[in-house]
Amino acid sequence: MQIKYEAFARHAVSQAAKEKRVSASQLIETLAGAGSGLSDALAERAEILRLSQAAHDAVLLPRAPGGLSHGERAALAARIASANTDATLAGHYRALLRRAGESPALLAIADGAVPAAEVAGADGRLRAIVRHVDLVTLSPKDATRADIAALVDAGLAEPDIVRLAELIAFVNYQARVIAGLRLLGSLA
């Protein structure tokens, strides 16, 4: 999985990244456009970047995906990245979706502009998942017990509810680290 991921990173990110071997821990840096002005600070936190990459692999490309396929995870991650107005990150997840295998419903989900209730080709389970993803991404403060009950009613098993929560939470973490690094890179 790690080898495939590195191959993707070489292919999909910047020209500069293509010219040297991209270690997995460089994804956040590369997507943030982090230049030499940040390299010392990032070097001091290399272990955090390495663990962030491992977390990415655990939620997007798990060995045991349970009831959430790699394709569904990639489509939802692209949607979360879009809600965070990060087109570069969304593009990364759409590339993961292409590798996992697209469907019209998953492409509509990845396109954050389509509301949950209007995702063509999605069944009740998938629409409930998208609704939850949007709620917890945009306004987690409004989530309640009833929102978990709605996922159960839509047929999600409890382990899949936890897997979904980790996916939503991770991509929101990652989008903020990248947004923060872009701002930090703006410092003279």
């Binding site: 990032l42 936190r45 955090i48 989530a143 978990i148 509810i161 939503i168 690094l181």
Partner: peptide, 28 residues
Amino acid sequence: LSKVEILDLILSASIFGWANRLMHTLGE
């Protein structure tokens, strides 16, 4: 604040973008 200190602030706020979305949505 140094760049490392600001990076640590970015990371500590961001990891709660993760932790809050688990603790506040999976329980009470």
